[in-house]
Each structure stands twice: as C-alpha cells, then as structure tokens.
Design a protein around this nucleic acid. Structure first.
Lengths: 245, 245
DNA sequence: CGGCTGGTTGATTGGTTTCAACAAGCGTGG
DNA sequence: CCACGCTTGTTGAAACCAATCAACCAGCCG
C-alpha cells in the first residue's frame, strides 16, 4: 500500500496534489511493530497521532478481572484520534493484531497542517465523525444484533472500509483476525464465533480460509446483518481500483 | 440551570469571562420540545449544532424490524457533535426522553467562535474526545459486562456526568429514564432491567424512586461495575457546588 | 519431535428473552 | 367525583441463545 492515509481522507474531501504532499511530509518515519504488542498502552500520555500504514490494529480495554473488549478495529490509513494529544492519558490501549507499520504526526505538525489546508482540516474532521459513527454502529450491534447478525455486519463493514483504500474487492478481502479476535470484538466467546462461522458457511454466504474472507452473496449478507453503509459516510468518488492484497 | 454548556466545557479547559460571553452569544434562541419527540431524525441533513440546555435526550438507531438501540444519553450542556454539519445526513436520530430545551449554534458561528478563542477550540475538541471515550465505554459495557454490572456502571457514569454541571451530588441525582429507556440503552429487555434493579436494591446499593436515583454505597457500586471515571476526562477544577435539581 | 497457537466439537449450565398477565399511578373527560 | 385508558412497573413460567468446561485435532516452528 502506498499512501493509505491520503487514500482514505480523499474519500471524505477531494484532496489537491499539494494536500497529498503536505500530508506525506507530515508523517514521521515509519515504525514497525510485532503482532500482539502495544502501540500505546492504557494510561500513557499521548503526544502524537499514530497512523496505521500496514497491518491491522485495535483499540482495546481490559477490565481488572481479565475480561477484554476490542472496541474498534484500525485498518491501514486509519489515524488513531487526530487530537488525542489534547488528553492527558489514554483510556484504552492500541495494539497490533498483525505485524503493523505505522507513523506518527506530532501534535503541532498536525495543527499546522490543518491550519494550512482547509481541505485537510475538513477531511480530518469528517474522518473523526465517521469514526464516531462506526463506534455507534458497534454499540448497535452489541446492543441489539444476534450473534450471526453481528458477524455478518462486521463482514459487511470490513470489506467496505478496506475497499476505500483499495485493499478489497466487493466480494473478497484479507481478514487476518483469529476467531479469538472476532470474539473479543463482538462480545462473544471464540467457541460461539466458531459455531456462528459454520452457520454462515452452511448458508453459503461466505468462505473464510487462510486469513481471507470471500463473500458469495453480498446482498443476502447485508440483509441478514441489517447493514446500511451510509454510516461510514464515504461520499467522495467511488472505490479506487482494487489491488492485490 | 443557567449555562450548562459553559459549565461543562469549563471542566475540560479553563474559560475566561470573554469565552463565556462569546459562547452564550453564539447560542441561538432556546427551543422547547415535548418528551418522546425527535430533535433531528435519521437521514436529515444537519446544518447546526444542537446543544441540550434542559432535560434529557438520546441518540438512537432503529433497525428495520423495529429493534431500537439508544447509543448515547445527552444531558444538559451536551453538544450533539460540534461538527455534524460537515456531514450530509444523520446516521442516527436525536430524540427527547423528557421535555427538552435546546438551542442551536449554526455551523459558521461555531467556526468563527473556535477561530476567535483557542480555549473554546480546545474545549470543544476535548469534549468530542471525551464523548468518543464514553461511546467506547458503552461498547465495553455491552460487550463484556453482565446485566447487573451494566446497570451499576450507568449508575456510576450518570451522576458523575451530571455533577460536572452541578445537577448531582455524589450520592443522588435525577434519573428521568423509564425502565424501557434503560433497557434500550443497555441492550436488554425492560423485564430483565426490572429484575436487575431489584437485585441492586436488595444489595442495598441504590434506591430508585420517583425519577430520582440515590446511591447508598458509591464505592461498592463502582467496584461491582468496574467503574473508573478517568474515561470521562474531566480534568479542570472540582465539582461545582451542587444545586437542587 | 515437542510445544504452541488456532480451530473444532460435545455436553452441560445459566443468564436473558419471551410471553402473558396483572398492579399501580396518573391525567382526562363524562 | 369516579370511570376509563394509558403508561410504567412487576411477576411467573417456559424457551432459547450463548457461555462454560473439557477434550481433541491440525498446522507451524524451533
């Protein structure tokens, strides 16, 4: 993936060549981190925006008795809260689920960037609003969707988000999550996720094999999930040409 | 309540007298709306920020088959997404749960306001981050807290949020929600909420009578809920003197 | 080969929903 | 003033979805 952040922001607001150049200049050096390690931990004082460039990460919260909830999934191009550095301490951890490459934009640099370009300012604002909408949709899933509907919904959301940065076609995308990760994301046990996956397969809706999700009947899957992509608020342009991933 | 918005923002960033004056000038005329009606509906194009001045409201999503989820509760002083007007359509409704008085800040006025005052800009940004954190915490509750823990957690969160605007003491606050509302907020049925409430009462933790919540043992309630107030990110000043509510 | 992680299966338990009925409070109109 | 209807809260029994517990299997890697 070349510049997933620019690709993603461009789905919210059209970006000029200068915007893209400033954006890439603002990104600090790429850092690599192993799977299953923390990018930033609960309680730390954030001082920069982390942007995922490659790999999958998550925000997660851990209760004292060991229970753990993945509250959101972070894909390439996702900034982790454009203004976190205004807070004094992280209320959640950001952890790599796969090997991750990320870069940082220091707080002052981001402020200078949004001051210089109105388009980038709007793009970051809309990105934040869309992220909030995704969080609300997860609340809806956990609150009133059944097990199979939750899984189906996630399997509609992820390819849509990935296709915005050219990492998915309409019917297939990488899915490097373990059943344990899915369980922590959907508020269920991995045992039950396993059985629900089998149900989705039995209904001929999906294939999930060697970290790749294939959707055989997008329309029926969306109907089962009560999925309506409008909460993702992608408004500019259509999907970029899919690439191998 | 005099100026709940200023009271709330002042918990994030110290505000000058001028800041407070500009803020109150930015607010449009107060509007009243009956309980159980919509302030703004799903699908509408937002063009201003709604700020709750009195009463309780909620964000809610409704699925086609009638299921409904309250994704967040809006209390006096809460702005409903400082920058929503950047989006083309609402992905959720905002509805009054009680009679509500609210006012609007038109998009351009808000932008002028934050351009003029760095403190207000930071305050709105931090408010947005705190709101996102609350949404994440609800995700955690729905994902991995049991019925009684969820209720206990809400009963810790609400007095804390209300006390920030002077509407609650440490042990008592108004709670105008029906058991049906609680059910829609916590992803359960009202029947089960009823039984869970009885359990909390039986343990001597709370009293809930005539729309008023009294907490008899805050420490034990917080422990049961795994409640840690740091996600609310109130950092400036202590609770304002409680008033009758 | 051994050990580990990730996935699969079965039996059992238990928290919640569902369905159904009823009680209490309250505003309204006859 | 009381009757009525409506909302809100309460209770019991049965059904069900998902968690728990406990194995076991397959693949991968050192």
């Amino acid at each position: 993936m070349h510049d997933p952040l620019a690709a993603k922001l461009a789905r919210y607001v059209p970006l000029s060549v200068a915007d893209r150049m400033w954006l890439s200049e603002a990104l600090g050096p790429a850092r690599s981190i192993a799977a299953r390690t923390d990018i930033i931990d609960e309680g730390e004082d954030p001082h920069a925006v982390n942007v995922i460039l490659e790999g999958w990460a998550c925000r997660s919260r851990q209760l004292v008795d060991g229970r753990r909830q993945i509250v959101s999934l972070l894909l390439p191009g996702d900034p982790c809260d454009p203004h976190v550095f205004l807070l004094d301490q992280m209320d959640h951890a950001i952890s790599a689920l796969t090997p991750v490459v990320y870069a940082q934009i220091p707080g002052p640099v981001l402020q200078e960037l949004t001051a210089r370009s109105a388009a980038l300012d709007r793009a970051f604002q809309r990105e934040a609003l869309a992220t909030a909408a995704i969080q609300r949709e997860w609340t809806v899933s956990l609150g009133c969707r059944s097990g199979i509907e939750r899984l189906a919904h996630l399997f509609c959301e992820l390819p849509t988000r990935l296709s915005a940065i050219g990492l998915a076609t309409r019917t297939s995308c990488p899915l490097p999550l373990t059943q344990h990760d899915l369980a922590h994301s959907l508020g269920q046990t991995s045992v039950h996720i396993n059985r629900t996956l089998q149900e989705l397969r039995a209904q001929g809706l999906i294939t999930l094999r060697s970290r790749r999700l294939t959707i055989h009947d997008p329309a029926r899957l969306a109907e089962l999930a009560h999925f309506d992509a409008s909460y993702l608020h992608f408004t500019v342009g259509s999907d970029p040409p899919p690439v191998e991933a």
